[in-house]
Each structure stands twice: as structure tokens, then as C-alpha cells.
Write a protein that binds this DNA or RNA. Structure first.
Lengths: 247, 247
DNA sequence: GAAGCGCACAATGTATACATCGCGTCAAGA
DNA sequence: TCTTGACGCGATGTATACATTGTGCGCTTC
């Protein structure tokens, strides 16, 4: 049959995409390993056509690379790559913050992101029970997405979304790890302070400050990376994204 | 036949890619127009499969967008989009310059880009004959490519290459126009001065200065854009890239 | 006459068959 | 024993056939 009976036809490529991403992120395919199209197609229960489309999209996302002779392989990231991706996110988000400050943002949008900040406050503040990390991730992602939108630049937002797609460059990349280490929980408080400062700077039209703050905010991720790599290497397994790192 | 007899099989997708890019850049397909796969495939003498691959790559490059209901359409860029893309190139190249300065670059690489600068000097300096704009474009592109490489960051270089792929964000976007307007030739002298200053700052490990200079360097493109749009609208036709602008 | 429904066409999304190219293996010769 | 060549397998790249979905037009009805 040309299209599937049960599953929703036309979403085969989405199925292949999410399936492939999972395989890569969970490390079920190793670095440099050549990705056999037929094997993957059989494994994901899709045809080769949507699978190749998914492979192409993953190449665009940067998770796989083309082999000169043909086909694709899982990309392996050096530690320097991870550092650079985090730095780049800081630069891009910094630019978004600066443009938002320089160009001004409509009050309704400012209010919306302030609401997110307030919600984050309630999550971060030490309460009786354990912190809801899932909720934190959701709100944190929303904050960063809205920050990108504040720039008013479609081009920039797209680029931020791209770099954020790299799993270890995501704003939430190290949140999972932090759940187990009490010292890490304090970094979330620091992050929240920076969130507030960034929005404050934008509201005051202080572009340079907003840019510097957003850059520094991304630096937090690098601190966490250094901590995981050098002081607590046993935590590496808990950060899914680092499964892609070669060294 | 499954593959072509005459042409090199496996390069059909490249053929479709370059052909499609030409069609879009030359404005032979209008903004928002739905791109019919069968029609394009027939026009470019390729099958639908490599054509769809090319369409997907062009979407990655940002020249076409997906239609929610399916298929692709030529993306139309607002003037703000063009401005933002230029700004973004400045930010990214600025980051490359800063990282190069902060991290240091091997002397052999510094020497290589200095050679390019010297060659540009010879092209820009007023001589008896007319200036060789083709040579300028080649050297200018090489300078910007090597500048990106000086950062030592693969991630950043890839991103710069991406944004530079947008025709109006290319360092050479407005060079063609300048050939006719004597006043524009002076901007090339200014640009060359900035080239030298950027490399100087990198050599002196002055990261902040290098970043600021590279940003300002991109600003030159925006000046040219403003000039074309507001003072000499008749020149718009000479800048191929601006055929993509809607307003 | 206008609005809503239904049908037919055309377009995309998917599956699969085919051709070519790269790579490994094996054998023969030096 | 090492090197070089050819052969075969398996892989990707390409073409095409098929199913489904979205869209536009015409008809019917109020």
C-alpha cells in the first residue's frame, strides 16, 4: 500500500524524525556510525522516502552529517563544539535582548514574559515539597522563546530556535542533572535573578546591559558543563545531551 | 530509466538545487507563489525526488517556506528581515572576531588572511584602469570566510555560512551596485580600512574592539541598503538579492 | 441571488522498483 | 608474503506508481 492504513498518512516523516532523534539522543547509534537507511526504515516502520527526509532535516539540525561517499553518520561533538554552541546561544539571545531594548517592546508582550518570570519565581522559591523540575523546564523554555520573540526579528528567532535545537545548547540542557545535586538548585535561583535583570534592562531600554546579561546567563550552562565534566564525571550519564560528546 | 544516461547520476539533486536557486533569485517565480513540484521538475529536467530534496534544502537556507496545507512557496522578505539579516551577520562575524582575539590564532592563519587583505589593497587602490569588481568579490568573500575560520569554532562558522547564504546578507550583496556609482567606490575603501582594523585588533588580542569593528563593518551593507531604497530606488533592479523583497 | 454542500481534479506525501556507485573480499601474479 | 586487480554485494541516488488530502468549481436549495 502506498500509504498506511492505521497511522495518519503524511505524518510518516514526522514519525521518522522523532524516532530518529530519539535514537540519536539516547545513544542507540554510536558516533560516526553509518546510518543504514534500510535498517532504520525497518526499525522505525516507515518507508525510505520519509526516512531520508528526516535524515535531511537532522542534518540541517546538525545532529548528523553527510558522508562524502554518500549516506549519513551520527555527528560527534567535541567538548569545544559544546562550549561554542553554548557561547553562540548566549550571543544570539544577547542580541535578541539588545534589539528588544533598542527597538522597544509593546507593553502586552512585556507583561506576558513578566508573567512567566513570576511563575518561575513560584517554582524556584524554596517550599515545603520538592521542586517541580518538569514545570521549571516548561516555563524556562517559554521564557527563552518569548525573549527571542521580543526582538521582533523573525530571522533572529529562527536562528535561536536552530541553535537551541542542539540538545546540549538548550536552556534546559542541565536542568535534569541539577535535580540530584542540591548545590545545583542554587544555580536556578541565580538563573532566575538573571531572568529578572534581563527583562528589567529591556524595559529600561538598556540595550548593552540586556545583551551582557543574556550572554552571562548562557554562561551558567557552561559552568554546569565544566562542573559535570571535571568534578562529577559520574553525572555525565544523567545529561542525555552529553551522550553525543566524543571525548 | 532510473538514472540519467548522459548527465552524472547522483548529481540530479545538485542540478535541481542550483536551478531552483537561480529561478528564485532571478525572480522568475513570484513571492508567495506556490511551487508546483511537477512543473518545476519538468522545467529543470529532473525527477520529483531530487527536486523535493532541493526544496527541502532551500527551506533550510530560508529561501522558501512550507505551506501549512503542504508544498512550498517562495519566501518574501520584508525590509525589516533584510535589515535583521545584515545585523545578524554583523553579530556573528563580530563574535568570530572576538573569539579569534580571545583565543588567539596561529601565526600562519593570521599571515594567510593578511595576504588576502594585501590583495584587496591592490584591487581597491585607485589605478589607471577600472576596478576589477569580480576580483574584489572573490577576495572579499575569501576574507570573510577566513575571518569566520579564525574563530576556531566549527559551530560558529557553520552559522555564519548559513546567514551568508541569504543573498542580501552576503558580504558582496551590494558590490554589484557600487560599480556604477562613483560615491560607492569610496565605501569599498572604508570597508578595506575596517578589514585591516579587524585583523589588527585580533592580532593585538583586543576582543571587544574586534567585535565592535566587525559589527560596524556589516553596518556598511545596511547603509548601502538604505541608500538604494531611499535615494536611488532605480538601482533596486541592479541588486539581484533585493528581488526577493516584498515591500 | 446568495450561501452551503458535494464532487472532481490536481497536488502533495508515500511506497517501491531500478540503476549506479562505493567498498570489501578474493585471487592471481610478482 | 605483499600488492594489485577484478568481481560481487550492498548501499545510496533516482524514477515512477499509488493513495490521500486540500482546493476550486458547479450545482442545488433557501
Amino acid at each position: 500500500m502506498a500509504a498506511e492504513r492505521d497511522g495518519a498518512p503524511k505524518q510518516q516523516t514526522a514519525k521518522a524524525l522523532t524516532g530518529l532523534r530519539d535514537l540519536v539522543l539516547k545513544g542507540e547509534v554510536l558516533h560516526g556510525e553509518r546510518l543504514s537507511e534500510v535498517a532504520l526504515a525497518a526499525r522505525l516502520k516507515v518507508s525510505r522516502t520519509p526516512l531520508r527526509a528526516a535524515l535531511q532535516k537532522l542534518e540541517q539540525e546538525g545532529l548528523v552529517v553527510m558522508i562524502p561517499s554518500g549516506g549519513y553518520a551520527v555527528r560527534s561533538f567535541s567538548r569545544q563544539d559544546v562550549i561554542d554552541a553554548i557561547e553562540l546561544r548566549g550571543v544570539l539571545e544577547g542580541t535578541a535582548a539588545r534589539l528588544a531594548a533598542e527597538r522597544g517592546v509593546p507593553p502586552v508582550k512585556l507583561k506576558a514574559i513578566l508573567d512567566v518570570v513570576a511563575s518561575l519565581d513560584r517554582v524556584v522559591e524554596p517550599g515545603p515539597g520538592a521542586m517541580d523540575f518538569g514545570l521549571y523546564e516548561m516555563l524556562n523554555e517559554r521564557f527563552h522563546r518569548q525573549l527571542a520573540a521580543l526582538s521582533g526579528s523573525e530571522v533572529l528567532s529562527r536562528e535561536i530556535e536552530r541553535i537551541t535545537g542542539l540538545p546540549f545548547a538548550s536552556p534546559n540542557a542541565f536542568v535534569n542533572t541539577e535535580a540530584d545535586v542540591p548545590a545545583f538548585q542554587r544555580t536556578l535561583v541565580i538563573a532566575q535573578t538573571q531572568h529578572k535583570a534581563i527583562i528589567s534592562a529591556i524595559g529600561l531600554r538598556e540595550g548593552a546591559r540586556a545583551e551582557a546579561l543574556a550572554r552571562e546567563h548562557a554562561r551558567l550552562a557552561r559552568q554546569n558543563l565544566d562542573f559535570v565534566m571535571e568534578e562529577q564525571p559520574d553525572l555525565r550519564g544523567k545529561v542525555l545531551a552529553l551522550a553525543l560528546m566524543s571525548s
